[in-house]
């Protein structure tokens, strides 16, 4: 609780530090506009046109429906990865054999291109929610798993010994000695897992479903509707930036305050 209050208290200062980021976004938009003037509206619509399209789209209920479908798939896939990746990673980390055995599996999961997973999932599950969710899980699970595994494997034996010398009861050992260390590994892994999930969900939808934002992207592409395409891209990037910079980054800062 104390923690949440501290995050909220430091939030304005954090926002203030974001001026640099905002300036660079505006710079980016300026270059975008130059690109529009050079190549024409068919190839690259102007930022203004894109944002106009975006506003009309956001007033359209059917667009929100697509966004919700995508959100649902991404959250289910990411949620499952988060729960199972963290738990299995912890478990594997506590047993040397398990962590050695899991390494090749992780390598396969990480090394296999997502597009190959999508194709396989289409064969196994057909065209629908399962295919997308499966792909999201396969892509984000190993990242979280490895984070949890490393967090557990790198626990400091000296601190465990110290905890024993003060006869810490098990709940203190867990919350005061193990958890903060493991969390400092798992949390960044959650963040990258989330970014991965959000990218993969669009890709899987584009190839394997007829609804969701990815599918909308496929439709707008086939109609050569560049403003809509770009507006969709802006939604995807905007939502990711919102989650990452407004929600996760402030938490991460507080959580890692004690680090060098």
């Amino acid at each position: 609780m104390k923690f949440i209050i501290k995050i909220l208290k430091d939030f304005p200062a954090y926002l203030w530090s974001g001026w640099g980021a905002i300036a660079s976004i505006f710079l980016f938009i300026a270059f975008w506009d130059i690109g529009n003037q050079v190549y024409g509206a068919l190839v690259l619509p102007s930022p203004l046109e894109t944002f106009k399209t975006l506003t009309t789209m956001l007033q359209d209920e059917s667009v929100w429906k697509e966004i919700n479908i995508t959100l649902y798939r991404a959250s289910v896939g990411f949620g499952l990865s988060l729960i199972f990746g963290s738990l299995l990673g912890l478990l594997a980390g506590f047993f040397v054999t398990a962590s050695i055995m899991s390494r090749p599996i992780v390598t396969i999961l990480v090394g296999m291109p997502p597009i190959a997973w999508i194709v396989l999932a289409m064969i196994w599950f057909g065209m629908g929610d399962e295919t997308v969710i499966f792909t999201v899980i396969v892509a984000s699970f190993p990242i979280i798993f490895v984070g949890a595994l490393q967090g557990t494997r790198t626990l400091d034996d000296d601190l465990k010994e110290m905890a024993d010398s003060f006869k810490l009861p098990w709940h203190m050992k867990f919350f005061d000695v193990y958890f903060p260390h493991i969390f400092s590994y798992v949390f960044p892994a959650w963040v990258s897992g989330l970014g991965m999930a959000w990218k993969i969900v669009i890709m899987a939808e584009l190839l394997a479903t007829s609804d969701g934002m990815g599918a909308s992207l496929a439709v707008s592409r086939s109609q050569l509707d560049t403003p809509t395409t770009l507006a969709l891209v802006v939604i995807m990037i905007g939502s990711l930036m919102f989650i990452e910079y407004i929600i996760l980054e402030p938490i991460k800062r507080e959580v890692e305050l004690w680090r060098d």
Binding site: L159, E161, M162, D176, P180, W258
Partner: peptide, 27 residues
Amino acid sequence: NSFAFQEGRLLPWKNVIDNIALGLLAK
């Protein structure tokens, strides 16, 4: 009994007071 280690062995994620209080809370 209690132990003061050569290298300190403080919990890096706890501040000075919370580190000192650790043994008391454990009791």
